[in-house]
Design a protein around this nucleic acid. Structure first.
Lengths: 340, 340
DNA sequence: TTGAAAGCGCTAACAA
DNA sequence: TTGTTAGCGCTTTCAA
């Protein structure tokens, strides 16, 4: 945890220095930089003095004095390299920037202890609101801070033990819609393949898959469900499925990595239908039908919810569901094998 | 720029409150939370008091008092939705977290004025170091702050008018290596297709493309170079190229979007060789040969450079080049048309 | 429109 | 190992 020493090259000018050079009081300089009634003539003098001293206002001091919260929005994501969270963070950043706030970003790496450290750090930095992709299965430890006035929003998964706003994807409905389009085309033997990075999301998608098959009169789906512990086992799982006597004629991949694995395992000339959850680069080139969603919008919604609660702390808790949509590109439109 | 009011729900406990409840001095509580010699018995009492008061230390105050810089690393990226920057940011975050720092992220949207606002905001927040993907063509305005002791690192593009460390990709070498593999296979008519999001990167890649063709004795390359202003014109450009009497037998795509456009325009059964710059989801499924690079490593390097300069402000300026590697998957290995 | 004094929450520099 | 005093840079409150 060596943070490195912080040796100032040349000492920085302070507001008081600027005041002295400009021949005004500190408060007047403050008004120039933080808004307030200042005459044009005075403003000019102050700005000239500030420029000559290379003055940079110190927000640490400003935020400490006034109110005690910084102009930042904290966001604790799961795995930092997951491109999905990157898109969500992009949405948060965009809304934050619109409101003059900066994004403070940290990753829990899906570890509950790290989640605690990250959230603690952000609360210590007095973020204006805290957005969180819950990693552990208990966020009740955040309740005191929520009550103390830091708005919290759970993103992508609902938090547990914490009465917070939330924004999640329509995972169950999206999976069901995908499978419905398969059963409508006559498919009955549909597989679900995934390597569950996070439990909640995949439980929902699996439930949606089962919903749609049940609606079509298919109940014994367990034989086509493959939730493997690590992504490198996905291809093997697909190979195992196609060798079965009741081999599936269609596949729903639970996430992006699973989509790639299914396509790789089936080969380019397969006649089995495939739908992936989550859109991917080159999916259109490949003709891959997917359940798509707007991850950036999810982040934007989360940030808006957070800011709404900053303004109005007592508003009722809100749970937003971001819809998915089925993007048909061919691979999901292949009919069941006639001989099957 | 409405940041919303910040109405505290219940007033937060301060270090002094904890001290009173624990029956010790404020400084002792400070030592418990920021490290220092404290007896086990005292520590226990302080921690109990802190827990009962739901105390959260205030880093704003701590950082203001001690040294004046926050435990954050600032990173100003270009376009926030660009997945490349997301990967780079992931690398920065990882290294920052290892050192107990949080990532402060903002996007310039490739606009010089926004870049200035973002950097100003971060400097006002007293980031320990500032990483920047330069958007405008002049970063000299940051020199005073660099001299005042805030380490700066330019990422992905060199900054101009600023003597800062930098980390960039081996764009020129990567493009040259790709084209060399094509000319080695006998290709002479090689196209370069891109929609330059940023000037520097594409100028370098184009230069590498020309280098390699010149080495192979091909000099009049302009007829196969297509730098179109917007991505939606890429496919059209490819169609135009293949209709030429001297149509290219191979393509180098300047970035990910260009790769997708080339593949889409050529169609699935094309016999022309294609190499893309930047790896993509499903590129392996498609058999797309690419110039790949480690964007996360680029971010890690940048963060390490920044932290090295925090520790040692007077070390010589360092310019790191992150290598690329050619990943052969088939599409780049197609021989030139025999009849061409 | 401007200024003087006080203090936000914490820690540096002492001392004990 | 613990406490006291002062003050980080700024803004609040009040007054002029």
């Amino acid at each position: 945890m060596d943070q490195g020493a912080a040796p100032p090259g040349r000492p920085r000018a302070t507001l008081t220095d600027v005041a002295r050079v400009a021949g005004v009081s500190a408060k007047t300089v403050s008004r120039v930089f933080s808004g307030g009634p200042v005459s044009d003539e005075t403003r000019r003098r102050v700005e000239a003095a500030a420029a000559s001293l290379r003055f940079r206002p110190n927000h640490l001091a400003r935020d400490l004095r006034s109110g005690g919260t910084a102009a930042t929005l904290g966001f604790v994501i799961g795995r930092v390299t997951n491109p999905f969270y990157a898109q969500v963070a992009a949405g948060v950043e965009r809304v934050a920037a619109e409101h003059g706030l900066t994004l403070l970003l940290a990753a829990s790496e899906d570890d509950p202890a790290t989640e605690r450290r990250c959230t603690a750090s952000m609360l210590a930095q007095r973020v204006r609101a805290l957005l969180l992709v819950p990693a552990g299965d208990d966020q009740s430890y955040l309740s005191p801070d929520a009550e103390a006035g830091t708005p919290m929003v759970c993103v992508d998964r609902p938090g547990q033990g914490l009465d917070a706003d939330s924004v999640v994807l329509a995972n169950r409905e999206g999976a069901a819609a995908a499978v419905r389009s398969l059963t409508a085309a006559g498919h009955r033997r549909v597989a679900f393949v995934a390597s569950p990075g996070d439990v909640h999301t995949h439980r929902e998608r699996l439930a949606g898959y089962r919903d749609a098959l049940r609606e079509a009169g298919v109940v014994d789906t367990a034989r086509w469900e493959r939730l493997v512990p690590t992504p490198d086992l996905l291809e093997e799982a697909v190979h195992g499925l196609v060798r079965r006597p009741d081999a599936p004629t269609a596949f729903l991949a639970g996430n992006g990595r699973a989509s790639a694995a299914v396509l790789r395992a089936l080969g380019p000339s397969s006649d089995r239908a495939v739908i992936g959850f989550d859109d991917l680069d080159l999916a259109d080139v490949l003709g891959l039908t997917v359940v798509a969603f707007d991850a950036v919008a999810l982040g934007e919604q989360a940030a808006r919810l957070a800011l709404a609660r900053v303004r109005e702390p007592d508003r009722p808790t809100e749970h937003v569901v971001v819809p998915t949509r089925l993007v048909r590109r061919g691979s999901g439109e292949r009919p069941p094998r006639t001989g099957a």
